[in-house]
Amino acid sequence: MKWGGEVIEFHLDARSGVAPYMQLIRQVRHALRLGVLNEGDKLPTVKEVVARVAINPNTVSKAYRELEYEGLVIARPGLGTFVTRTLVGDSLSKHEPLRQGLARWLTEAREAGLDDESIEALFLSSFRAFSEARG
């Protein structure tokens, strides 16, 4: 909880191979999912992020634009960027049935003779292709 001022601090993992703007987006979504960020909360200004993380301002703007496009935040000129909705509860209730579906799939994969690493590799490559195809 906080009153006024910005809530979250960003950080960058330089060796992840994930584009910096995407890392920022993920950190905001993560904070929304965990309830660290709530409706009405203000994100740090571009200048604040830049000064703290030593990151390109265009990258921060790009991340904020993307979040705005997703409908998660809104930019109010002269005031800052504010959270418009939260992601808490959005998905948590759906976790259990999904987990069960995944367990069934894992059993099938085992029965087909795949070992742990093959399963992991198959999942990761499918997941990556899936998310890349969806942009």
């Binding site: 571009v46 830049v50 030593a54 390109n56 301002p57």
Partner: peptide
């Protein structure tokens, strides 16, 4: 190095 780059990015943003 980090301090320098922070300063540089702040100037870029401003």
């Amino acid at each position: 190095r980090r301090n320098f780059l922070q300063g540089l990015m702040e100037l870029t943003a401003e």
